[in-house]
C-alpha cells in the first residue's frame, strides 16, 4: 500500500504503481525541490504528513456498484466528456465509484481504470467534502499572507501571476487553489507556473534561468513554484475584470463559478458553507490588468 498526503488528508492507495503515480503527480502535496534540481519524483517526496487523525482517502481497484435511483448527467471537463451519476454521498464517474464523506472517502476503480477527468472530478468532490473549497485562481503570498486572483480566461491572470513571481512574491499556485473554510488557510497543488517564452522575456526575464528543461504540452516554460514553504492565510480574493463593482448576486455567482458545482450532498453542504464564509473576502470592485499588481502589493506588503 502506498501512503501519501493530499491537502490535510492521508491517502491510502492500493492502485497499480502507474495509476498511483499519475494521481500523485496531480494530487499529492507538492514539496520544494532543492535549488537547481529537477522536481523530485513523487515516490521520493517527503510530503507534509497529515495528523494521524486526519481525513482518510482510500483508493483501490474494485467493482463499482451500479447506480440505483441516482441523478445522471453528461459532464464535460477540459473538453472531455464523462458520464456522471450521483445519489446523496455516492458518485459514479464512468468506471470510477466514490463514497464521499467529511472524514473518510473511498474510491473504487474498475479493472479498466478511469480517465484523468473522472479522477479529477472525484478527488475534487472528496476535497470539497473535507472542507476545502477549490478555487480556479492564482494565489500569491508574502510571509503568511496570501491573495487569490481569479478571472475569466484571457483576463490577464497568468500574466499578473508571472509578474508577481518576478517581483519576488511566492506563488502558491497558478490555478489549482484550495481554501480551507474553517481555518482560512489556502494551499495549492500546482508544481509550476507555465508561461510562454515571450511572456517570460517580457515580464520576468530574470526567471528564465529557473525554467526546467522540460516544457508542458503547449510548449510553455515550467517555472518551479514554492507552494509548501509555509502555511498562508487568504486575506482577499481579487477578480480580474474591468474595474467595475459587482453587486451581491454577481459576487455570489463569481464565487460559484470559481469553485465549481458540487454533486454529492456532503460536498454541497460543505461548499455552500464555504462560499458564505469566502464571500466577505471577495473585493466588490474588480481589478484590472493595469492595477492588479498595485492591489496585491498593497495587501501583502503592509
Amino acid at each position: 500500500m502506498n501512503r501519501w498526503s493530499s491537502l490535510d488528508a492521508q491517502v491510502q492507495s492500493e492502485l497499480t504503481p502507474a495509476q498511483d503515480s499519475e494521481l500523485r503527480a496531480l494530487w499529492e502535496n507538492p514539496v520544494l525541490p532543492a535549488e537547481g534540481s529537477e522536481p523530485l519524483a513523487p515516490s521520493a517526496q517527503a510530503a507534509v504528513q497529515p495528523h494521524p487523525d486526519s481525513r482518510r482517502i482510500e483508493l483501490r481497484e474494485g467493482v463499482p456498484p451500479q447506480p440505483v435511483g441516482a441523478s445522471h448527467a453528461a459532464l464535460t471537463l477540459m473538453d472531455l466528456p464523462v458520464e456522471a451519476a450521483w445519489n446523496e454521498s455516492r458518485l459514479w464517474l464512468d468506471d470510477l465509484y466514490t463514497e464521499v464523506g467529511q472524514h473518510s472517502s473511498r474510491l473504487l476503480v474498475g479493472k479498466g481504470g478511469a480517465s484523468a477527468v473522472a479522477w479529477s472530478l472525484a478527488l475534487t468532490e472528496v476535497q470539497r467534502a473535507g472542507g476545502w473549497l477549490p478555487l480556479h485562481a492564482a494565489v500569491v503570498a508574502r510571509g503568511g499572507k496570501a491573495v487569490a486572483i481569479t478571472g475569466v480566461s484571457g483576463a490577464g491572470k497568468s500574466t499578473a501571476t508571472l509578474r508577481l513571481l518576478g517581483l519576488g512574491f511566492r506563488v502558491i499556485c497558478e490555478d489549482r487553489a484550495f481554501w480551507h473554510a474553517a481555518s482560512g488557510e489556502v494551499r495549492g497543488l500546482d508544481r509550476w507556473l507555465r508561461a510562454f517564452d515571450d511572456s517570460v522575456d517580457t515580464f520576468a526575464p530574470q526567471l528564465r534561468d529557473q525554467a526546467l528543461a522540460q516544457r508542458d504540452i503547449k510548449g510553455k516554460l515550467l517555472l518551479p513554484l514554492t507552494p509548501d514553504a509555509g502555511a498562508a492565510q487568504l486575506l482577499e480574493v481579487l477578480a480580474l475584470s474591468d474595474g467595475s463593482v459587482m453587486d451581491s448576486a454577481g459576487r455570489v455567482r463569481l464565487l460559484w463559478e470559481t469553485t465549481g458545482y458540487p454533486l454529492t450532498r456532503p460536498a454541497r453542504d460543505a461548499v455552500q458553507h464555504g462560499v458564505g464564509r469566502l464571500l466577505p473576502l471577495l473585493r466588490a470592485q474588480t481589478v484590472t490588468r493595469h492595477n492588479v499588481l498595485d492591489a496585491v502589493q498593497e495587501l501583502l506588503e503592509f
Binding site: S248, A249, W256, Q272
Partner: peptide, 13 residues
C-alpha cells in the same frame, strides 16, 4: 439548488 446565505438575503443558484 445551491444556497448562499447572505444574512438578510438568500441567494439560490
Amino acid at each position: 439548488v445551491l444556497i448562499t446565505d447572505l444574512g438578510d438575503e438568500l441567494v439560490l443558484m
